[in-house]
Amino acid sequence: MDFDISVKLAIYHAIADTGKAPTIAQVAAKLGRPTVAIREAFQRLFAKRLLALEPETFEIRMAPPFSAVPTPFAVSAAGKSYFANCVWDAYGIAAALHQDVDVSTSCGCCGEPMTLAVRAGTPVPTPGIAHFAVPASHWWDDIVYT
């Protein structure tokens, strides 16, 4: 298997299993490779827009749809807890895990708590609407703010 694919799968399976993004050192230990090789793989995966990295450390900030840091989109699935990067990614976690999920979030305007749920591959009908602040052509100018 291509090395970068092995790294990608190690990252995503670790997050799916634990809810936490693995560090460079953890992926290196898992795959039995030097940390420098893993850091370079992280950077190639960033170039392919499969990861967003912390600028100083090159550790994972986002492995979409998962966030490595707490966000206003808390997702629970099969007794595990995750954070999504945005409302699209909150549904994305359900799609990626192929599991029922519950999302706890709030209205971007008034802060009123809102919940979303997915059951058996279908979103439970809920009042609400999504608003993208940034046009599609600029999403990766600053992927943390879209």
Partner: peptide, 15 residues
């Protein structure tokens, strides 16, 4: 991208 309760709440947030 954010979630809003309604279109009215989107309008208010944008303003």
């Amino acid at each position: 991208m954010l979630l809003f309760r309604s279109e009215e709440h989107v309008e208010r947030w944008c303003k």
